[in-house]
């Protein structure tokens, strides 16, 4: 089997995780998230030889997705991604009202906090893995998780 067909299988296997992660980062902007996801996979295809198998392929893709998101944020100086209007929900099928509340509150966090919380909780990565994916020191990731979690708790308690 060639690299192309193998890569097609990898895209199918990881598209949901990458697009879901990017939808969280872009606060539910599905179109922008999909554009960034496509760029992520194109970059991954170009750099496939550089993947050394350290960590999962999904983590490597999330690292590229995060870089793409940061590049897009830098490009949009006039309309930063953090100020984009909040969409209804980045989750295509929010299970409950609590989940919707979480997504709304999550949208008010900084991108770094959203990314750290999503990686460490929803995607099940360790703090160390999240630090590698986000190219941040471990302590910084831990403080993003801690601070983001505290903010979420306060917002959700205020809502209820």
């Amino acid at each position: 089997m060639s690299t192309d067909t193998d890569f097609g299988a990898l895209v199918r296997a990881h598209q949901s995780k990458v697009r879901g992660f990017l939808r969280r980062l872009t606060r539910g902007d599905a179109a922008l998230a999909d554009d960034l996801a496509q760029e992520t996979f194109l970059e991954a295809y170009r750099k496939l030889a550089q993947y050394r198998g350290e960590g999962s392929f999904g983590s490597w893709l999330c690292g590229i997705a995060w870089s793409r998101f940061l590049m897009e944020r830098r490009k949009r100086k006039e309309e930063p991604l953090d100020e984009l209007p909040e969409s209804a929900s980045p989750d295509p099928a929010p299970a409950s009202a609590a989940r919707l509340d979480l997504e709304r509150a999550m949208a008010l966090l900084s991108a770094e906090e959203r990314a750290a919380l999503t990686l460490c909780y929803a995607l099940g990565h360790s703090h160390g893995e999240a630090a590698e994916i986000l190219h941040l020191p471990l302590g910084t990731v831990k403080s993003h998780v801690l601070r983001g979690r505290e903010k979420l708790k306060a917002m959700l308690e205020a809502e209820s």
């Binding site: 496509q38 194109l42 989750d91 295509p92 099928a93 979480l102 929803a122």
Partner: peptide, 18 residues
Amino acid sequence: LLSTPLGDVADAGFSKRV
């Protein structure tokens, strides 16, 4: 709540576009 996995995103032609 935070640990709930992200919902599945349907492929809907995404892989083919890539």
